[in-house]
Simulated scan of single mutants.
Amino acid sequence: MPTLIGSVQRALRLLEAVGSHREGAPAKQLAREAGLPLPTAYHLLRTLTHEGYLRREGGVFVLGAAAQRLAVGGLQQKRRTMILDSLAHFRDAVGAPVYFAVYRDGEIEVVGVSDTPANPACEEWADFRETGHAHAIGQCLLGQLDEEARRDYFDRHPVQPVTPYTVSDMHALEQRIGGFGRMEPVTERQEYLLGTVCAAIPITAGDTAATMAISLPLHLEGRLPYAVDRLRSEVGALLSSLSFSISI
């Protein structure tokens, strides 16, 4: 095991050395910068090249496709961590589960959720993507779309009852969504899940429709206006970190 760990460490030092040279570098220079004997460096460079982490071009080594995928994956993970940290901040500030969602490629996508055992998130018992007409997240996102994009969504995901409180008449739903103020919160009461009330606020995230939402048990409905106001007041300071989610 120590030998294996040492080999991995040496390989990583070589990758770091290659990554510091945009135009690539020869084996001798990389061995020197990584503090490795030349034969060891040659062996590791050949292995890394064979596995796709490096490419040899004109006598120099440059990062390969596999290394670039690692870099992209690391960036995506960093973004996800920033989003979850932000959501946890909002969750603690409002004392309720917090959701962040976007409308991307014609579908509703919940990017992140933060809750606690004492305040659990709403159970996704019916697919969020297909029931946008029934929950505050979907209604808020659909309200930010133009009529053509909204019609495309409903053509693929027809309006139907989810609970006895769901607005299941398409004309009534369109009137409701069309009446939303540009930056006003959207609320729904037991339309998606019995015993639960939700509210969502629109988020400016470039050209992408986005929203943050909260949910509460029905018996705590009186707290909803305060929680929404608190969420809106907190969002601005951390909006820059939330915008990372758009590229995930």
Rank of each mutant, 00 (worst) to 15 (best):
2 P>I: 05
5 I>E: 00
7 S>Y: 00
8 V>A: 00
9 Q>N: 02
9 Q>F: 00
15 L>C: 10
17 A>D: 09
20 S>E: 06
21 H>P: 00
23 E>R: 03
24 G>N: 05
25 A>M: 11
27 A>E: 14
31 A>E: 08
34 A>W: 01
36 L>R: 04
37 P>N: 11
37 P>F: 10
39 P>W: 13
42 Y>K: 15
42 Y>N: 15
43 H>W: 12
44 L>V: 12
44 L>T: 09
47 T>W: 04
48 L>G: 02
49 T>M: 06
51 E>G: 10
51 E>D: 14
53 Y>R: 05
53 Y>F: 12
55 R>Q: 05
58 G>W: 00
61 F>A: 04
63 L>R: 11
66 A>W: 01
67 A>E: 03
67 A>M: 01
68 Q>Y: 01
68 Q>L: 05
69 R>I: 01
70 L>W: 11
71 A>E: 12
73 G>P: 09
77 Q>I: 09
78 K>M: 11
81 T>H: 06
82 M>K: 02
83 I>L: 07
84 L>W: 03
84 L>Y: 05
88 A>T: 15
93 A>T: 15
94 V>K: 06
95 G>C: 07
95 G>N: 10
96 A>Q: 07
97 P>S: 06
97 P>K: 07
100 F>I: 12
100 F>N: 08
100 F>E: 09
101 A>S: 14
101 A>N: 09
102 V>R: 11
105 D>M: 03
106 G>R: 08
108 I>Y: 01
110 V>Q: 01
113 V>C: 11
115 D>S: 15
117 P>V: 13
118 A>H: 14
118 A>I: 15
122 C>T: 06
124 E>Q: 06
125 W>E: 07
126 A>S: 06
128 F>M: 15
131 T>R: 15
132 G>I: 08
133 H>I: 11
134 A>T: 06
134 A>S: 13
134 A>W: 09
136 A>N: 09
139 Q>L: 14
141 L>Q: 06
141 L>A: 07
141 L>R: 02
142 L>Q: 07
147 E>F: 04
147 E>I: 03
147 E>P: 05
154 F>Y: 13
155 D>C: 13
158 P>N: 04
158 P>D: 04
161 P>G: 00
163 T>Q: 13
164 P>N: 13
168 S>N: 14
168 S>M: 12
171 H>C: 03
171 H>A: 08
172 A>H: 00
173 L>Y: 00
177 I>S: 00
180 F>T: 03
181 G>E: 07
182 R>S: 07
185 P>K: 00
186 V>Q: 03
187 T>W: 08
190 Q>D: 11
194 L>N: 12
199 A>R: 15
201 I>H: 13
206 G>P: 14
206 G>F: 10
206 G>K: 13
207 D>Q: 10
209 A>R: 04
212 M>Q: 08
213 A>W: 03
213 A>K: 06
214 I>F: 03
215 S>N: 06
216 L>A: 01
216 L>S: 04
217 P>R: 08
218 L>E: 15
219 H>Y: 10
220 L>R: 14
220 L>T: 07
220 L>Q: 14
224 L>A: 05
226 Y>K: 09
227 A>S: 08
227 A>T: 07
229 D>S: 11
230 R>P: 06
231 L>P: 02
231 L>F: 08
233 S>L: 05
233 S>I: 01
234 E>V: 02
234 E>D: 05
237 A>V: 09
241 S>Y: 11
241 S>D: 11
242 L>Y: 12
245 S>L: 12
248 I>T: 04
